Computed example of a mutant assay.
Amino acid sequence: MSSLKDFSQLNIDWNLSPEHAVTMYLEWGNNDWHAEHPPVRSKDDFAHYFVVDTWGESPIIRLVRRNSENAVELISVPLPDSLKANYVKEYGNLRGVFEPTQEIKAWIKSEMGH
């Protein structure tokens, strides 16, 4: 079984939200060349980023590798109980895929050994 530490050598884009990933990779040309994330130039461009998936019974953290052709889940881990209360306070019971909070990003980085 994999752990987050197994992915510590990847170049993670900590500021890439799911919404921005869609803009970059699925709506080519829809973003500014001077933005933090310039437009994708080819299907060889890809990014690694984390999301919090709340479609199920309990939130799950997913590491995604995305290019213009697909998104591949590299690992998914349950959101630890110690982080759930603050997460639910911020997002309530909304269902969807969200950018991790700063608290969750800090936990992920710690788990990855950063």
Score class of each variant (00 low, 15 high):
residue 71 A to D: 12
residue 82 S to T: 13
residue 97 V to G: 04
residue 93 N to E: 12
residue 62 R to V: 00
residue 98 F to D: 02
residue 73 E to K: 10
residue 64 V to A: 01
residue 17 S to H: 04
residue 77 V to D: 01
residue 18 P to M: 06
residue 32 D to A: 05
residue 88 V to M: 09
residue 22 V to S: 11
residue 74 L to N: 03
residue 60 I to A: 12
residue 64 V to L: 11
residue 70 N to Q: 10
residue 82 S to C: 12
residue 76 S to F: 03
residue 49 Y to E: 00
residue 76 S to V: 01
residue 26 L to H: 13
residue 86 N to C: 04
residue 88 V to W: 06
residue 39 P to C: 10
residue 91 Y to R: 15
residue 10 L to P: 02
residue 28 W to N: 12
residue 20 H to A: 05
residue 72 V to M: 09
residue 55 W to V: 08
residue 40 V to R: 05
residue 30 N to W: 05
residue 79 L to S: 11
residue 101 T to L: 13
residue 47 A to Y: 00
residue 11 N to C: 05
residue 47 A to T: 09
residue 101 T to W: 00
residue 47 A to D: 07
residue 29 G to V: 03
residue 12 I to N: 02
residue 55 W to E: 03
residue 81 D to S: 14
residue 70 N to W: 03
residue 41 R to W: 01
residue 40 V to K: 12
residue 21 A to E: 00
residue 85 A to N: 02
residue 18 P to Q: 01
residue 90 E to P: 01
residue 58 S to W: 15
residue 37 H to A: 11
residue 49 Y to D: 00
residue 98 F to Q: 03
residue 83 L to R: 13
residue 60 I to Y: 08
residue 61 I to N: 06
residue 17 S to R: 08
residue 80 P to W: 08
residue 93 N to F: 05
residue 33 W to V: 10
residue 86 N to F: 06
residue 53 D to C: 10
residue 94 L to A: 14
residue 73 E to G: 06
residue 100 P to R: 02
residue 30 N to M: 13
residue 101 T to I: 05
residue 17 S to W: 04
residue 96 G to L: 12
residue 45 D to S: 06
residue 72 V to L: 14
residue 26 L to E: 14
residue 74 L to M: 15
residue 20 H to K: 14
residue 66 R to N: 00
residue 85 A to P: 00
residue 56 G to S: 15
residue 74 L to I: 10
residue 57 E to A: 14
residue 28 W to K: 15
residue 13 D to T: 10
residue 10 L to I: 14
residue 38 P to C: 13
residue 29 G to A: 09
residue 13 D to A: 14
residue 42 S to F: 07
residue 54 T to L: 05
residue 94 L to M: 13
residue 59 P to A: 04
residue 60 I to V: 14
residue 61 I to F: 11
residue 94 L to I: 10
residue 95 R to Q: 07
residue 89 K to C: 00
residue 58 S to A: 05
residue 21 A to H: 10
residue 36 E to L: 13
residue 37 H to L: 02
residue 95 R to C: 08
residue 68 S to P: 08
residue 74 L to R: 15
residue 40 V to G: 08
residue 26 L to F: 08
residue 20 H to Y: 12
residue 86 N to S: 12
residue 71 A to E: 15
residue 92 G to H: 07
residue 42 S to Y: 04
residue 28 W to R: 11
residue 25 Y to M: 07
residue 76 S to L: 05
residue 26 L to R: 15
residue 83 L to H: 12
residue 68 S to R: 14
residue 53 D to Q: 07
residue 13 D to R: 06
residue 70 N to A: 10
residue 86 N to K: 14
residue 71 A to G: 15
residue 16 L to G: 04
residue 84 K to E: 08
residue 82 S to L: 03
residue 98 F to Y: 13
residue 85 A to E: 11
residue 64 V to Q: 13
residue 19 E to K: 14
residue 68 S to L: 01
residue 64 V to F: 02
residue 61 I to H: 06
residue 27 E to N: 14
residue 66 R to A: 11
residue 20 H to S: 11
residue 97 V to A: 02
residue 11 N to F: 03
residue 71 A to T: 02
residue 61 I to E: 11
residue 59 P to V: 03
residue 51 V to I: 15
residue 94 L to R: 15
residue 44 D to W: 10
residue 18 P to E: 03
residue 79 L to P: 15
residue 92 G to L: 09
residue 71 A to N: 08
residue 77 V to L: 13
residue 29 G to L: 03
residue 57 E to L: 05
residue 21 A to M: 04
residue 50 F to L: 08
residue 93 N to T: 14
residue 19 E to H: 06
residue 54 T to G: 07
